[in-house]
């Protein structure tokens, strides 16, 4: 198995509060991995540390871009990390509301294109070619998530579920090898969740993008993920395949509750 992301002993303190405590996690090529845990367990903080929004207090975050040397990304700026090939979505949707759907995805292409101010003003053949490719790739991505018919709508006018999918398309536009999804199914109805479920599996299978997702929807998590990490109070509680997690008494007690014991 080819390791893509290797987090070792990640620790994050906010003043006296230890939000993430010595958490290790790894993701291999082609895997869908889930990170679960009760509210406030430190999942999003963990995400923010791995994607550069926060600089972790301790531990190592190392990524291995396929075919390239491994890079330790602690304290690197988020845009550098995205350029290296690790893209993310947000728990509370963060689109660019007053830009069109297509433009939102085109923003994702920013780090894979190179037109500078002079190039943009002169609009030479290279710029034109790049622009055309950007539009085409972005459009193709919209088709993949089923939003192509809304390409010229403003992002803020999209229904909630579509906004979530747009965020995924935008993240995919950065050509990542690893996609981090922060509660992609939050606020979705069962039908939308099912579609999302299929979309995530399709991304992993067809595009070969590995996925790490934070999720509360147990059905979704158990259905699609190959391995699950469970966090509680900032610490890693357990990890393993879904079956094992389902039957792990510590996890049941901490998170899944009575319901799961009888399931």
């Amino acid at each position: 198995m080819e390791k893509l992301l290797d987090v070792r002993g990640l620790t994050m303190d906010f003043g006296g509060l230890r939000a993430v405590d010595n958490v290790s996690l790894e993701i291999n090529k082609g895997e869908i991995v889930a990170l679960i845990g009760p509210n406030g367990a430190g999942k999003t903080t963990f995400f923010n540390c791995t994607t550069g929004i926060y600089t972790p207090t301790g531990g190592d975050v190392v990524i291995h871009p396929p075919g390239e040397a491994e890079v330790r990304i602690n304290g690197m700026k988020p845009n550098r990390i995205t350029t290296l090939g690790m893209a993310r979505t947000f728990q509370n949707i963060r689109l660019f509301p007053a830009m069109t759907v297509l433009e939102n995805v085109m923003i994702g292409r920013h780090c894979r294109t190179s037109t500078d101010i002079i190039g943009a003003i002169l609009r030479g053949p290279n710029t034109k070619k790049q622009e055309k490719e950007t539009i085409e790739k972005s459009y193709a991505l919209l088709e993949k998530v089923g939003l192509d018919h809304l390409a010229n709508e403003f992002a803020k006018n999209l229904p909630y579920g579509a906004q979530r999918r747009l965020e995924i398309a935008r993240a995919m536009a950065t050509d990542p090898f690893l996609l981090l999804l922060d509660e992609p199914a939050a606020g979705m109805n069962p039908q939308e969740t099912k579609e999302l479920d299929e979309l995530i599996v399709r991304i992993a299978r067809e595009e070969g993008i590995s996925i790490l997702l934070i999720e509360h929807d147990m059905k979704l998590v158990m259905n699609i993920s190959e391995r699950i990490y469970v966090m509680e109070y900032g610490k890693l509680l357990a990890y393993g395949p879904p079956e094992e997690i389902k039957n792990n008494p510590k996890v049941i007690e901490a998170y899944l509750g009575e319901e799961a014991v009888h399931a």
Binding site: T51, I53, K77, P78, N79, T82, T83, A87, R88, F90, R94, L95, F96, P97, A98, M99, I107, G108, H110, C111, R112, R170, A171, T174
Partner: peptide, 10 residues
Amino acid sequence: EDEIACVAMG
């Protein structure tokens, strides 16, 4: 539109 999303998009 959104600074954090902006940097997260590279």
